[in-house]
Design a binder for these strands. Sequence first.
DNA 1: CGAAGCGTTGAGATAAGTCAATTAGTGTGG
DNA 2: CCACACTAATTGACTTATCTCAACGCTTCG
Lengths: 248, 248
Amino acid sequence: MLNEDIKTVAHDCGDCPIRHRAVCARCEADELERLEEIKYYRNFQAGQTIIWSGDRMDFVGSVVSGIATLTQTMEDGRTQMVGLLLPSDFVGRPGRDGSPYDVVATTDMVMCCFRKKPFEELMADTPHIAHRLLEMTLDELDAAREWMLVLGRKTAREKIASLLSIIARRDATLNLQTQQNSLVFDLPLTREAMADYLGLTLETVSRQISALKRDGVIELEGKRHVTVPDFSRLLDEAGDDSDGGMLS
Amino acid sequence: MLNEDIKTVAHDCGDCPIRHRAVCARCEADELERLEEIKYYRNFQAGQTIIWSGDRMDFVGSVVSGIATLTQTMEDGRTQMVGLLLPSDFVGRPGRDGSPYDVVATTDMVMCCFRKKPFEELMADTPHIAHRLLEMTLDELDAAREWMLVLGRKTAREKIASLLSIIARRDATLNLQTQQNSLVFDLPLTREAMADYLGLTLETVSRQISALKRDGVIELEGKRHVTVPDFSRLLDEAGDDSDGGMLS
DNA sequence: CGAAGCGTTGAGATAAGTCAATTAGTGTGG
DNA sequence: CCACACTAATTGACTTATCTCAACGCTTCG
Protein backbone atom coordinates (compact mmCIF):
# COMPACT_ATOMS: atom_id res chain seq x y z
CA MET A 1 0.00 0.00 0.00
CA LEU A 2 2.87 2.32 0.65
CA ASN A 3 4.62 1.43 -2.56
CA GLU A 4 3.28 1.51 -6.06
CA ASP A 5 0.42 -0.75 -5.43
CA ILE A 6 -0.81 -1.48 -8.89
CA LYS A 7 -4.31 -2.72 -9.02
CA THR A 8 -5.49 -4.96 -11.76
CA VAL A 9 -7.15 -2.40 -13.98
CA ALA A 10 -6.55 0.65 -11.87
CA HIS A 11 -4.74 3.54 -13.46
CA ASP A 12 -2.36 5.72 -11.63
CA CYS A 13 -3.66 9.22 -10.90
CA GLY A 14 -0.49 10.62 -12.39
CA ASP A 15 -1.44 9.32 -15.82
CA CYS A 16 -5.10 10.14 -15.53
CA PRO A 17 -6.42 11.99 -18.58
CA ILE A 18 -8.72 14.12 -16.45
CA ARG A 19 -6.25 14.73 -13.68
CA HIS A 20 -6.08 18.48 -14.26
CA ARG A 21 -9.78 19.12 -14.72
CA ALA A 22 -11.63 16.83 -12.33
CA VAL A 23 -12.56 17.24 -8.71
CA CYS A 24 -9.04 16.16 -7.76
CA ALA A 25 -7.41 18.81 -9.93
CA ARG A 26 -6.09 20.84 -7.04
CA CYS A 27 -4.96 17.98 -4.83
CA GLU A 28 -1.45 17.74 -3.45
CA ALA A 29 0.44 14.46 -3.59
CA ASP A 30 -0.61 13.42 -0.09
CA GLU A 31 -4.25 14.16 -0.81
CA LEU A 32 -4.07 12.13 -3.99
CA GLU A 33 -2.71 9.23 -2.01
CA ARG A 34 -5.70 9.31 0.27
CA LEU A 35 -8.00 9.49 -2.74
CA GLU A 36 -6.31 6.52 -4.34
CA GLU A 37 -7.13 4.47 -1.29
CA ILE A 38 -10.87 4.92 -1.72
CA LYS A 39 -11.13 4.97 -5.47
CA TYR A 40 -12.09 2.26 -7.90
CA TYR A 41 -12.98 2.18 -11.58
CA ARG A 42 -16.27 1.11 -13.07
CA ASN A 43 -17.19 0.52 -16.68
CA PHE A 44 -20.61 1.12 -18.13
CA GLN A 45 -21.99 0.18 -21.50
CA ALA A 46 -23.81 2.52 -23.81
CA GLY A 47 -27.44 2.65 -22.76
CA GLN A 48 -26.83 1.44 -19.25
CA THR A 49 -28.41 3.33 -16.38
CA ILE A 50 -25.78 4.29 -13.84
CA ILE A 51 -28.10 5.68 -11.21
CA TRP A 52 -31.89 5.58 -10.99
CA SER A 53 -33.66 8.67 -9.78
CA GLY A 54 -34.38 8.33 -6.08
CA ASP A 55 -32.07 5.39 -5.58
CA ARG A 56 -29.58 5.36 -2.81
CA MET A 57 -26.05 6.12 -3.99
CA ASP A 58 -23.08 4.79 -2.15
CA PHE A 59 -20.50 6.45 -4.33
CA VAL A 60 -19.59 9.67 -6.05
CA GLY A 61 -17.10 9.98 -8.87
CA SER A 62 -15.70 11.49 -12.02
CA VAL A 63 -16.36 10.66 -15.63
CA VAL A 64 -13.04 9.49 -17.07
CA SER A 65 -14.19 8.77 -20.60
CA GLY A 66 -17.50 8.58 -22.41
CA ILE A 67 -20.66 10.58 -22.03
CA ALA A 68 -23.63 10.36 -19.69
CA THR A 69 -26.87 12.28 -19.40
CA LEU A 70 -28.88 13.50 -16.44
CA THR A 71 -32.61 13.27 -17.03
CA GLN A 72 -35.80 13.98 -15.16
CA THR A 73 -39.00 12.19 -16.06
CA MET A 74 -42.62 13.03 -15.34
CA GLU A 75 -45.18 10.36 -14.53
CA ASP A 76 -46.66 10.49 -17.99
CA GLY A 77 -43.27 9.91 -19.56
CA ARG A 78 -42.28 13.38 -20.65
CA THR A 79 -38.56 13.64 -20.03
CA GLN A 80 -36.14 16.50 -19.86
CA MET A 81 -32.42 16.18 -19.97
CA VAL A 82 -30.94 18.48 -17.34
CA GLY A 83 -27.27 17.88 -17.86
CA LEU A 84 -24.65 16.30 -20.03
CA LEU A 85 -21.74 14.68 -18.24
CA LEU A 86 -18.45 14.78 -20.09
CA PRO A 87 -15.01 13.55 -19.12
CA SER A 88 -13.88 15.23 -15.87
CA ASP A 89 -17.43 16.04 -14.76
CA PHE A 90 -18.46 15.04 -11.28
CA VAL A 91 -21.29 12.64 -10.49
CA GLY A 92 -23.23 12.61 -7.26
CA ARG A 93 -23.79 14.93 -4.40
CA PRO A 94 -21.83 14.69 -1.18
CA GLY A 95 -24.16 15.07 1.77
CA ARG A 96 -27.20 13.58 0.12
CA ASP A 97 -28.26 10.00 -0.24
CA GLY A 98 -30.07 9.81 -3.53
CA SER A 99 -29.88 11.41 -6.93
CA PRO A 100 -32.91 13.39 -8.08
CA TYR A 101 -32.13 12.36 -11.67
CA ASP A 102 -31.52 9.32 -13.74
CA VAL A 103 -27.91 9.12 -14.85
CA VAL A 104 -27.55 7.18 -18.08
CA ALA A 105 -24.49 6.32 -20.12
CA THR A 106 -25.02 7.26 -23.76
CA THR A 107 -21.69 5.84 -24.85
CA ASP A 108 -19.45 3.27 -23.22
CA MET A 109 -18.01 4.92 -20.16
CA VAL A 110 -15.35 4.66 -17.53
CA MET A 111 -15.90 6.24 -14.17
CA CYS A 112 -13.49 6.85 -11.34
CA CYS A 113 -15.63 6.22 -8.26
CA PHE A 114 -15.06 7.06 -4.62
CA ARG A 115 -16.91 5.43 -1.79
CA LYS A 116 -19.17 8.17 -0.54
CA LYS A 117 -18.61 8.08 3.19
CA PRO A 118 -14.80 8.20 3.07
CA PHE A 119 -14.99 10.83 0.35
CA GLU A 120 -17.11 13.03 2.57
CA GLU A 121 -14.64 12.66 5.38
CA LEU A 122 -11.82 13.45 3.04
CA MET A 123 -13.67 16.53 1.90
CA ALA A 124 -13.97 17.77 5.45
CA ASP A 125 -10.20 17.41 5.90
CA THR A 126 -8.82 18.65 2.63
CA PRO A 127 -9.93 22.08 1.51
CA HIS A 128 -8.57 21.53 -1.99
CA ILE A 129 -11.22 19.01 -2.87
CA ALA A 130 -14.08 21.00 -1.39
CA HIS A 131 -12.85 24.15 -3.07
CA ARG A 132 -12.55 22.52 -6.47
CA LEU A 133 -15.98 20.98 -6.09
CA LEU A 134 -17.44 24.39 -5.27
CA GLU A 135 -15.82 25.83 -8.35
CA MET A 136 -17.16 23.04 -10.55
CA THR A 137 -20.62 23.31 -9.06
CA LEU A 138 -20.71 27.05 -9.69
CA ASP A 139 -19.74 26.38 -13.30
CA GLU A 140 -22.49 23.83 -13.64
CA LEU A 141 -24.96 26.26 -12.14
CA ASP A 142 -24.00 28.86 -14.72
CA ALA A 143 -24.37 26.28 -17.47
CA ALA A 144 -27.78 25.22 -16.17
CA ARG A 145 -28.92 28.82 -16.14
CA GLU A 146 -27.68 29.44 -19.61
CA TRP A 147 -29.63 26.39 -20.65
CA MET A 148 -32.75 27.87 -19.05
CA LEU A 149 -32.53 30.70 -21.56
CA VAL A 150 -32.30 28.17 -24.37
CA LEU A 151 -35.29 26.22 -23.11
CA GLY A 152 -37.45 29.19 -22.24
CA ARG A 153 -36.84 31.66 -25.00
CA LYS A 154 -35.17 30.25 -28.06
CA THR A 155 -36.84 28.97 -31.23
CA ALA A 156 -36.36 25.40 -32.39
CA ARG A 157 -33.74 26.46 -34.91
CA GLU A 158 -31.85 28.47 -32.32
CA LYS A 159 -32.04 25.57 -29.90
CA ILE A 160 -30.44 23.20 -32.38
CA ALA A 161 -27.76 25.72 -33.23
CA SER A 162 -27.09 26.25 -29.52
CA LEU A 163 -26.68 22.55 -28.91
CA LEU A 164 -24.41 22.11 -31.90
CA SER A 165 -22.23 25.00 -30.86
CA ILE A 166 -21.90 23.62 -27.34
CA ILE A 167 -20.87 20.22 -28.64
CA ALA A 168 -18.53 21.77 -31.18
CA ARG A 169 -16.92 23.95 -28.53
CA ARG A 170 -16.43 21.03 -26.18
CA ASP A 171 -14.97 18.88 -28.91
CA ALA A 172 -12.60 21.64 -29.88
CA THR A 173 -11.26 21.97 -26.34
CA LEU A 174 -10.95 18.21 -25.91
CA ASN A 175 -9.55 17.22 -29.27
CA LEU A 176 -7.83 20.40 -30.34
CA GLN A 177 -8.43 19.69 -34.00
CA THR A 178 -9.55 22.98 -35.39
CA GLN A 179 -8.66 23.23 -39.04
CA GLN A 180 -8.79 26.91 -39.85
CA ASN A 181 -12.26 28.03 -39.13
CA SER A 182 -14.13 24.82 -39.68
CA LEU A 183 -15.05 22.29 -37.06
CA VAL A 184 -15.81 18.62 -37.43
CA PHE A 185 -17.37 16.36 -34.85
CA ASP A 186 -19.73 13.47 -34.25
CA LEU A 187 -23.04 13.94 -32.52
CA PRO A 188 -22.95 11.92 -29.32
CA LEU A 189 -26.75 11.93 -29.06
CA THR A 190 -29.67 10.45 -30.95
CA ARG A 191 -32.30 12.79 -32.33
CA GLU A 192 -34.54 11.77 -29.47
CA ALA A 193 -31.90 12.56 -26.86
CA MET A 194 -31.34 15.91 -28.52
CA ALA A 195 -35.08 16.51 -28.37
CA ASP A 196 -35.08 15.70 -24.66
CA TYR A 197 -32.25 18.10 -24.11
CA LEU A 198 -33.91 20.89 -26.06
CA GLY A 199 -37.51 20.49 -24.98
CA LEU A 200 -38.62 19.58 -28.50
CA THR A 201 -39.97 16.54 -30.32
CA LEU A 202 -37.61 14.39 -32.31
CA GLU A 203 -39.44 15.29 -35.52
CA THR A 204 -38.81 18.97 -34.93
CA VAL A 205 -35.15 18.25 -34.23
CA SER A 206 -34.89 16.33 -37.47
CA ARG A 207 -36.60 19.05 -39.48
CA GLN A 208 -34.43 21.81 -38.07
CA ILE A 209 -31.24 19.89 -38.66
CA SER A 210 -32.35 19.37 -42.24
CA ALA A 211 -33.08 23.08 -42.51
CA LEU A 212 -29.65 24.08 -41.17
CA LYS A 213 -28.10 21.68 -43.64
CA ARG A 214 -30.18 23.03 -46.52
CA ASP A 215 -29.12 26.56 -45.58
CA GLY A 216 -25.46 25.62 -45.51
CA VAL A 217 -24.94 26.28 -41.81
CA ILE A 218 -23.80 22.70 -41.32
CA GLU A 219 -22.86 19.76 -43.51
CA LEU A 220 -23.88 16.21 -42.69
CA GLU A 221 -22.21 12.96 -43.57
CA GLY A 222 -24.39 10.09 -42.49
CA LYS A 223 -26.63 10.96 -39.58
CA ARG A 224 -24.09 11.88 -37.00
CA HIS A 225 -20.99 13.33 -38.58
CA VAL A 226 -21.18 17.12 -38.68
CA THR A 227 -19.00 19.74 -40.32
CA VAL A 228 -19.39 23.38 -39.41
CA PRO A 229 -17.85 25.46 -42.17
CA ASP A 230 -18.27 28.76 -40.35
CA PHE A 231 -18.53 28.67 -36.62
CA SER A 232 -19.52 32.29 -36.18
CA ARG A 233 -22.41 31.69 -38.57
CA LEU A 234 -23.56 28.88 -36.30
CA LEU A 235 -23.30 31.09 -33.24
CA ASP A 236 -25.31 33.66 -35.10
CA GLU A 237 -28.04 31.13 -35.68
CA ALA A 238 -27.94 30.25 -31.99
CA GLY A 239 -28.78 33.83 -31.11
CA ASP A 240 -25.64 34.22 -29.03
CA ASP A 241 -23.48 37.27 -29.32
CA SER A 242 -20.51 36.96 -31.63
CA ASP A 243 -18.04 34.15 -31.13
CA GLY A 244 -18.21 33.65 -27.42
CA GLY A 245 -14.47 34.05 -27.20
CA MET A 246 -13.71 30.60 -28.53
CA LEU A 247 -11.73 31.53 -31.59
CA SER A 248 -9.54 33.96 -29.74
CA MET B 1 -50.06 44.18 6.02
CA LEU B 2 -46.96 43.76 8.13
CA ASN B 3 -47.32 43.79 11.86
CA GLU B 4 -43.71 44.56 12.42
CA ASP B 5 -42.09 47.19 10.33
CA ILE B 6 -38.68 45.73 9.67
CA LYS B 7 -36.38 48.70 9.74
CA THR B 8 -33.19 46.71 9.44
CA VAL B 9 -31.63 48.07 12.57
CA ALA B 10 -30.44 44.49 12.91
CA HIS B 11 -26.77 45.17 12.36
CA ASP B 12 -25.75 42.59 14.87
CA CYS B 13 -25.36 39.11 13.43
CA GLY B 14 -26.88 37.66 16.57
CA ASP B 15 -30.25 39.22 15.77
CA CYS B 16 -30.07 38.61 12.06
CA PRO B 17 -33.28 37.08 10.68
CA ILE B 18 -31.35 34.95 8.21
CA ARG B 19 -28.58 33.96 10.58
CA HIS B 20 -29.44 30.27 10.49
CA ARG B 21 -30.00 29.91 6.76
CA ALA B 22 -27.50 32.16 5.02
CA VAL B 23 -23.93 31.53 3.98
CA CYS B 24 -22.85 32.32 7.54
CA ALA B 25 -25.17 29.71 9.05
CA ARG B 26 -22.41 27.40 10.16
CA CYS B 27 -20.00 30.01 11.42
CA GLU B 28 -18.55 29.92 14.92
CA ALA B 29 -18.41 33.05 17.04
CA ASP B 30 -14.87 33.93 15.97
CA GLU B 31 -15.70 33.48 12.31
CA LEU B 32 -18.72 35.72 12.70
CA GLU B 33 -16.51 38.37 14.19
CA ARG B 34 -14.29 38.36 11.16
CA LEU B 35 -17.33 38.53 8.93
CA GLU B 36 -18.69 41.48 10.85
CA GLU B 37 -15.51 43.35 10.09
CA ILE B 38 -16.02 43.20 6.36
CA LYS B 39 -19.77 43.44 6.15
CA TYR B 40 -22.03 46.38 5.45
CA TYR B 41 -25.71 46.77 4.67
CA ARG B 42 -27.17 48.16 1.50
CA ASN B 43 -30.75 49.06 0.71
CA PHE B 44 -32.30 48.80 -2.71
CA GLN B 45 -35.62 50.06 -3.94
CA ALA B 46 -38.12 48.02 -5.88
CA GLY B 47 -37.15 48.08 -9.52
CA GLN B 48 -33.55 49.00 -8.90
CA THR B 49 -30.86 47.04 -10.68
CA ILE B 50 -28.34 45.71 -8.19
CA ILE B 51 -25.86 44.32 -10.68
CA TRP B 52 -25.71 44.67 -14.44
CA SER B 53 -24.76 41.65 -16.46
CA GLY B 54 -21.06 41.76 -17.23
CA ASP B 55 -20.31 44.48 -14.74
CA ARG B 56 -17.50 44.15 -12.34
CA MET B 57 -18.68 43.20 -8.84
CA ASP B 58 -16.68 44.20 -5.83
CA PHE B 59 -18.92 42.52 -3.32
CA VAL B 60 -20.87 39.39 -2.58
CA GLY B 61 -23.64 39.11 -0.06
CA SER B 62 -26.86 37.73 1.31
CA VAL B 63 -30.43 38.83 0.79
CA VAL B 64 -31.71 39.88 4.22
CA SER B 65 -35.20 40.92 3.21
CA GLY B 66 -37.06 41.46 -0.04
CA ILE B 67 -36.86 39.67 -3.35
CA ALA B 68 -34.58 39.93 -6.35
CA THR B 69 -34.47 38.24 -9.71
CA LEU B 70 -31.65 36.97 -11.88
CA THR B 71 -32.29 37.51 -15.56
CA GLN B 72 -30.53 36.90 -18.84
CA THR B 73 -31.36 38.97 -21.90
CA MET B 74 -30.76 38.34 -25.60
CA GLU B 75 -29.82 41.13 -27.98
CA ASP B 76 -33.31 41.35 -29.38
CA GLY B 77 -34.80 41.79 -25.92
CA ARG B 78 -36.08 38.33 -25.14
CA THR B 79 -35.43 37.77 -21.45
CA GLN B 80 -35.42 34.72 -19.25
CA MET B 81 -35.44 34.79 -15.51
CA VAL B 82 -32.95 32.22 -14.27
CA GLY B 83 -33.35 32.59 -10.55
CA LEU B 84 -35.36 34.11 -7.76
CA LEU B 85 -33.41 35.39 -4.79
CA LEU B 86 -35.18 35.20 -1.48
CA PRO B 87 -34.06 36.12 2.03
CA SER B 88 -30.93 34.14 2.96
CA ASP B 89 -29.96 33.51 -0.67
CA PHE B 90 -26.44 34.33 -1.71
CA VAL B 91 -25.52 36.87 -4.38
CA GLY B 92 -22.34 36.81 -6.39
CA ARG B 93 -19.66 34.34 -7.20
CA PRO B 94 -16.40 34.19 -5.29
CA GLY B 95 -13.52 33.79 -7.69
CA ARG B 96 -15.10 35.58 -10.58
CA ASP B 97 -15.24 39.25 -11.41
CA GLY B 98 -18.54 39.82 -13.10
CA SER B 99 -22.03 38.45 -12.94
CA PRO B 100 -23.38 36.79 -16.09
CA TYR B 101 -26.87 37.98 -15.14
CA ASP B 102 -28.72 41.11 -14.29
CA VAL B 103 -29.74 41.13 -10.66
CA VAL B 104 -32.81 43.27 -10.08
CA ALA B 105 -34.72 44.05 -6.90
CA THR B 106 -38.43 43.40 -7.41
CA THR B 107 -39.35 44.65 -3.96
CA ASP B 108 -37.52 46.92 -1.58
CA MET B 109 -34.55 44.98 -0.35
CA VAL B 110 -31.87 44.87 2.26
CA MET B 111 -28.62 43.09 1.53
CA CYS B 112 -25.82 42.14 3.82
CA CYS B 113 -22.74 42.68 1.68
CA PHE B 114 -19.15 41.56 2.09
CA ARG B 115 -16.24 43.11 0.28
CA LYS B 116 -15.25 40.45 -2.19
CA LYS B 117 -11.51 40.24 -1.71
CA PRO B 118 -11.58 39.86 2.08
CA PHE B 119 -14.48 37.46 1.77
CA GLU B 120 -12.48 35.24 -0.53
CA GLU B 121 -9.58 35.25 1.88
CA LEU B 122 -11.92 34.42 4.71
CA MET B 123 -13.32 31.56 2.67
CA ALA B 124 -9.88 30.09 2.22
CA ASP B 125 -9.35 30.17 5.99
CA THR B 126 -12.69 29.07 7.35
CA PRO B 127 -14.08 25.81 6.00
CA HIS B 128 -17.49 26.50 7.50
CA ILE B 129 -18.22 29.27 5.03
CA ALA B 130 -16.96 27.39 1.99
CA HIS B 131 -18.82 24.28 3.05
CA ARG B 132 -22.08 26.11 3.54
CA LEU B 133 -21.67 27.87 0.23
CA LEU B 134 -21.13 24.54 -1.51
CA GLU B 135 -24.27 23.19 0.09
CA MET B 136 -26.29 26.24 -1.00
CA THR B 137 -24.87 26.10 -4.51
CA LEU B 138 -25.77 22.43 -4.86
CA ASP B 139 -29.31 23.28 -3.76
CA GLU B 140 -29.50 26.04 -6.33
CA LEU B 141 -28.23 23.68 -9.00
CA ASP B 142 -30.97 21.21 -8.16
CA ALA B 143 -33.53 24.00 -8.28
CA ALA B 144 -32.21 25.20 -11.64
CA ARG B 145 -32.46 21.70 -13.05
CA GLU B 146 -35.95 21.23 -11.76
CA TRP B 147 -36.80 24.47 -13.47
CA MET B 148 -35.37 23.13 -16.71
CA LEU B 149 -38.07 20.47 -16.64
CA VAL B 150 -40.69 23.16 -16.16
CA LEU B 151 -39.34 25.24 -19.05
CA GLY B 152 -38.75 22.39 -21.43
CA ARG B 153 -41.67 20.08 -20.94
CA LYS B 154 -44.58 21.59 -19.08
CA THR B 155 -47.67 23.19 -20.56
CA ALA B 156 -48.55 26.80 -19.79
CA ARG B 157 -51.08 25.71 -17.19
CA GLU B 158 -48.60 23.39 -15.52
CA LYS B 159 -45.99 26.11 -15.56
CA ILE B 160 -48.25 28.53 -13.73
CA ALA B 161 -49.23 25.88 -11.23
CA SER B 162 -45.55 25.03 -10.70
CA LEU B 163 -44.67 28.65 -10.02
CA LEU B 164 -47.58 29.12 -7.65
CA SER B 165 -46.68 25.99 -5.71
CA ILE B 166 -43.08 27.09 -5.37
CA ILE B 167 -44.11 30.49 -4.07
CA ALA B 168 -46.70 28.93 -1.78
CA ARG B 169 -44.17 26.46 -0.41
CA ARG B 170 -41.62 29.17 0.22
CA ASP B 171 -44.16 31.39 1.93
CA ALA B 172 -45.25 28.50 4.11
CA THR B 173 -41.72 27.83 5.32
CA LEU B 174 -40.98 31.50 5.90
CA ASN B 175 -44.21 32.63 7.50
CA LEU B 176 -45.46 29.40 8.99
CA GLN B 177 -49.06 30.41 8.56
CA THR B 178 -50.72 27.32 7.21
CA GLN B 179 -54.36 27.29 8.17
CA GLN B 180 -55.46 23.69 7.83
CA ASN B 181 -54.92 22.78 4.26
CA SER B 182 -55.26 26.17 2.64
CA LEU B 183 -52.46 28.56 1.84
CA VAL B 184 -52.61 32.30 1.36
CA PHE B 185 -49.91 34.48 -0.13
CA ASP B 186 -49.16 37.49 -2.27
CA LEU B 187 -47.55 37.17 -5.65
CA PRO B 188 -44.23 38.96 -5.52
CA LEU B 189 -44.07 39.25 -9.31
CA THR B 190 -45.89 41.08 -12.06
CA ARG B 191 -47.49 39.07 -14.84
CA GLU B 192 -44.61 40.03 -17.06
CA ALA B 193 -42.01 38.85 -14.55
CA MET B 194 -43.90 35.58 -14.20
CA ALA B 195 -43.86 35.25 -17.97
CA ASP B 196 -40.11 35.80 -18.01
CA TYR B 197 -39.69 33.15 -15.38
CA LEU B 198 -41.85 30.64 -17.19
CA GLY B 199 -40.83 31.23 -20.77
CA LEU B 200 -44.31 32.47 -21.71
CA THR B 201 -45.91 35.73 -22.78
CA LEU B 202 -47.67 37.85 -20.21
CA GLU B 203 -50.97 37.31 -22.02
CA THR B 204 -50.68 33.55 -21.67
CA VAL B 205 -49.84 33.95 -18.01
CA SER B 206 -52.91 36.08 -17.51
CA ARG B 207 -55.15 33.65 -19.34
CA GLN B 208 -53.91 30.63 -17.45
CA ILE B 209 -54.28 32.35 -14.11
CA SER B 210 -57.83 33.20 -15.07
CA ALA B 211 -58.39 29.58 -16.06
CA LEU B 212 -57.04 28.21 -12.76
CA LYS B 213 -59.29 30.66 -10.95
CA ARG B 214 -62.31 29.69 -13.05
CA ASP B 215 -61.62 26.03 -12.28
CA GLY B 216 -61.39 26.66 -8.55
CA VAL B 217 -57.74 25.69 -8.20
CA ILE B 218 -56.96 29.13 -6.81
CA GLU B 219 -58.91 32.13 -5.57
CA LEU B 220 -57.86 35.67 -6.35
CA GLU B 221 -58.45 38.84 -4.41
CA GLY B 222 -57.23 41.78 -6.43
CA LYS B 223 -54.46 40.88 -8.82
CA ARG B 224 -51.89 39.61 -6.40
CA HIS B 225 -53.51 38.02 -3.36
CA VAL B 226 -53.88 34.28 -3.83
CA THR B 227 -55.66 31.63 -1.81
CA VAL B 228 -55.01 27.97 -2.51
CA PRO B 229 -57.91 25.97 -1.06
CA ASP B 230 -56.33 22.59 -1.76
CA PHE B 231 -52.59 22.44 -2.14
CA SER B 232 -52.46 18.89 -3.41
CA ARG B 233 -54.86 19.89 -6.17
CA LEU B 234 -52.41 22.62 -7.17
CA LEU B 235 -49.52 20.17 -7.18
CA ASP B 236 -51.62 17.92 -9.33
CA GLU B 237 -52.08 20.70 -11.83
CA ALA B 238 -48.34 21.30 -11.77
CA GLY B 239 -47.76 17.74 -12.90
CA ASP B 240 -45.64 16.95 -9.85
CA ASP B 241 -46.10 13.76 -7.93
CA SER B 242 -48.37 14.02 -4.89
CA ASP B 243 -47.56 16.53 -2.17
CA GLY B 244 -43.82 16.75 -2.46
CA GLY B 245 -43.49 16.08 1.24
CA MET B 246 -44.47 19.55 2.29
CA LEU B 247 -47.53 18.78 4.37
CA SER B 248 -45.82 16.06 6.32
C1' DC C 1 -58.78 65.07 -15.68
C1' DG C 2 -55.31 62.61 -18.42
C1' DA C 3 -51.34 59.76 -18.49
C1' DA C 4 -49.03 55.73 -17.19
C1' DG C 5 -48.62 51.10 -15.47
C1' DC C 6 -50.64 46.73 -14.93
C1' DG C 7 -53.84 43.36 -16.13
C1' DT C 8 -57.61 41.05 -18.88
C1' DT C 9 -59.73 39.42 -22.96
C1' DG C 10 -60.55 38.55 -27.97
C1' DA C 11 -59.42 37.29 -32.87
C1' DG C 12 -56.28 35.67 -35.95
C1' DA C 13 -51.43 33.96 -37.07
C1' DT C 14 -47.81 30.63 -36.51
C1' DA C 15 -44.31 27.62 -34.55
C1' DA C 16 -44.16 23.37 -32.98
C1' DG C 17 -46.62 19.04 -31.97
C1' DT C 18 -49.07 14.77 -33.52
C1' DC C 19 -49.93 11.05 -36.39
C1' DA C 20 -48.50 8.44 -40.14
C1' DA C 21 -45.88 6.77 -44.11
C1' DT C 22 -41.28 5.98 -45.96
C1' DT C 23 -36.21 5.36 -46.14
C1' DA C 24 -31.82 3.83 -44.61
C1' DG C 25 -28.74 1.19 -41.91
C1' DT C 26 -27.70 -2.94 -39.07
C1' DG C 27 -27.78 -7.23 -37.25
C1' DT C 28 -29.99 -12.14 -37.29
C1' DG C 29 -30.97 -16.42 -38.78
C1' DG C 30 -32.58 -19.77 -42.20
C1' DC D 1 -26.89 -14.44 -49.48
C1' DC D 2 -31.27 -12.97 -48.99
C1' DA D 3 -35.26 -12.09 -46.39
C1' DC D 4 -36.56 -10.29 -42.00
C1' DA D 5 -36.99 -7.61 -38.17
C1' DC D 6 -35.59 -3.57 -35.69
C1' DT D 7 -34.07 0.92 -34.76
C1' DA D 8 -32.88 5.68 -36.16
C1' DA D 9 -34.06 9.21 -38.97
C1' DT D 10 -36.64 11.80 -42.48
C1' DT D 11 -40.60 13.88 -44.49
C1' DG D 12 -45.55 15.05 -45.20
C1' DA D 13 -50.28 16.46 -43.83
C1' DC D 14 -52.91 18.14 -40.38
C1' DT D 15 -53.86 19.93 -35.48
C1' DT D 16 -53.14 22.81 -31.70
C1' DA D 17 -51.01 25.45 -27.97
C1' DT D 18 -49.08 29.51 -27.60
C1' DC D 19 -47.89 33.99 -29.57
C1' DT D 20 -49.05 38.42 -31.66
C1' DC D 21 -51.61 42.36 -32.19
C1' DA D 22 -55.11 45.05 -30.49
C1' DA D 23 -58.79 46.85 -27.64
C1' DC D 24 -60.29 47.78 -23.23
C1' DG D 25 -60.65 48.16 -17.85
C1' DC D 26 -58.85 49.37 -13.44
C1' DT D 27 -55.71 52.01 -10.25
C1' DT D 28 -52.65 55.33 -9.06
C1' DC D 29 -50.59 59.66 -9.29
C1' DG D 30 -49.34 64.24 -10.72
